[in-house]
Design a protein around this nucleic acid. Sequence first.
RNA 1: GCUCCGGUAGUGUAGUCCGGCCAAUCAUUUCGGCCUUUCGAGCCGAAGACUCGGGUUCGAAUCCCGGCCGGAGCACCA
Length: 483
Amino acid sequence: MVDEEKKVDEKGLSELPEVNGEVVLRFAPNPSGPLHIGHARAAILNQEYIKKYGGKLILRIEDTDPRRVDPDAYGMINDDLLWLGIEIDEKIIQSERLPIYYEYAEKLINIGGAYVCTCEAGEFKKLKDNSMVCPCRDLDVEENLKRWNNMQNLSEGEAVLRVKTDIEHKNPAIRDYAAMRIVDAEHPRTGKKYKIYPMMNFSVTVDDHLLGITHVLRGKDHIANSEKQNYIYRYFGWEVPVFIHYGRLKMEDIALSTSKARTGIEEGIYSGWDDPRLGTIRAIARRGIMKEALYELMNEIGVKIADSTVSWKKIYGLNRAILEEVANRYFFVWDPERVKIGDLPESAVGTVKRPLHPDFLERGYREIPFKENICLVKGDIKNDKVLRLMDSVNIVFKDKKAIFHSSSFEEAKEAGAQLIHWIPDADNLKAEVIMPDASIIKGFVEPECKNLKVGDVVQLERFGFARLDEINNEKLIFYFAHK
RNA sequence: GCUCCGGUAGUGUAGUCCGGCCAAUCAUUUCGGCCUUUCGAGCCGAAGACUCGGGUUCGAAUCCCGGCCGGAGCACCA
């Protein structure tokens, strides 16, 4: 009992209205590409509500427009959901359900809720915009059934099934909208098997009802669709799910649209769907953004109808809080400069130990061999200033030559030394870090990085968090997350 | 253009339904300070908002009207 109350408090999500026991929700992307941050919002919100109330989450692939289907998208969507940790209870693909839609289309005609319209599209629009009915509307059920059965003998554009709504509705889009249309194109999954395809408003309504969906979460761009769908629910006497519309999610500095990304990939501007400049889930994942950060973000934004703008800074902030604990620390010397320390006492030579994580010493230490030949970040080198090489010695540059200054940390403090990191000149590994703008920063990492595995997210000290993406001939390739 | 919907600090959010406990919550951000052998983290402090104008009321972020700004829809896409 007490736990239940707590749970509600923890989540920033507002309560779903009209919940009676368990909920049935669905995530319904159309397979035009991989998932992006906008999809993640829908998927995560649905998932969170399932967690909150219990119930079932259905994945529905909406591939009823053969021309807008990317065959690769089915697999990419699965991968992306897996990465997001979305637990799907049931999955359906609309292109496999065409007979069901035909069945209900016929039923709708039978009860006088739909008619086959053979008007030319422009002609119909003209009539509709003036609240005038088209001649097809008044044909009787029998005639309509005949026309419906004949539809598959027609070609694209010659006929369409319309839902009878209110021809005087003040929103012209609502007036007798299309439910089914003819498409003369091959479907990537079903080929030429079908010719008549449902419009989204029809298939969505039929499916939402058959699947027992209780609440529909979707963007406010669907407000008019919700209203359209209401007509079908009313004709069939079905219970209407609760529609919840949320506002647009704008990402700063990001090309959100799938089509733009696709074009960029085709033109070779982007390396692929996981190019760090893109807002796809896979691109975000590749950069070491944790799914938990996205969950927090989506929970925070919630389902309000006003638009929200999200910046990378915001995501970085959330992600840093997660990575801070997770990521072990390593030295990465970018823009490296080879340095030989003069007058280095023999006693200073040895192995330096630094914790993998300063706050979790139990994780152990990494060992870095230290002797006179090292690499430093070029930008750290300044003449006549004492530099503290972390956990080793203090040096100073005179006429661009490094010489030993002192050993202890106290002496470094006294000299007001800057604390810098370093890498042995000989014993190191090549590394590259791919930045968010796809530029590459080259350098070396400390030897113990050889123990890292692809997918590990680390903090490169004084540089930032990065995810190991690839190990290529002893060279480590990281993707930069953020500072 | 038409129809509809929004507008709380830089950003995100709470509060708005059922006016007073709101000189407005929390987080992030930014800036100081402390601490720290990372430019990370932590700790302390500070900065910063009810879109504007009227009205109703003893009292308005909350209700009403208008302006401004923003968004969505206006397909045989989803």
